[in-house]
């Protein structure tokens, strides 16, 4: 690829990405009232997305073999407990990640 073609490739990807971000705002412009269904989706989707991300994170965990997903589920429980206790997002993120890494090293998986 020439430099010009590389720039064009990046611009094509940038245009597609901008489109995914701007499309809802362009379709449901501020003059008109947003349809009820869409507003419902806007309220209902984020918890669904967060749930989906948890499933996505665990897609490669093998419950039947290896460590049977024990470090993963222990780390999730630990993170949840830490968050319910301290209610502090940075503490939960770093604490949960640290717990997971310690478990991996303790079990000789990393």
């Amino acid at each position: 690829m020439t430099v010009l073609q590389q720039v064009a490739t990046i611009l094509a990807a940038a245009a597609a990405t901008v489109l995914t971000r701007a499309l809802p705002f362009a379709v449901f412009s501020s003059d008109k009232k947003t349809p009820r269904v869409v507003r419902y989706l806007g309220a209902a989707l984020p918890p669904a997305v967060f749930g989906l991300l948890v499933v996505y994170c665990l897609r490669n965990v093998d419950v039947m073999g290896g460590s049977h997903g024990v470090p993963e589920f222990a780390a999730i429980l630990g993170t949840a407990a830490l968050h319910l206790w301290k209610r502090n997002m940075p503490v939960s993120i770093f604490g949960g990640t640290a717990l997971y890494l310690v478990l991996l090293y303790a079990l000789g998986l990393a």
């Binding site: 995914t20 971000r21 809802p24 705002f25 449901f28 806007g42 989707l45 997305v49």
Partner: peptide, 8 residues
């Protein structure tokens, strides 16, 4: 697209 709908 879903993020955008949520942030409208």
């Amino acid at each position: 697209l879903f993020y955008g709908i949520s942030m409208l």
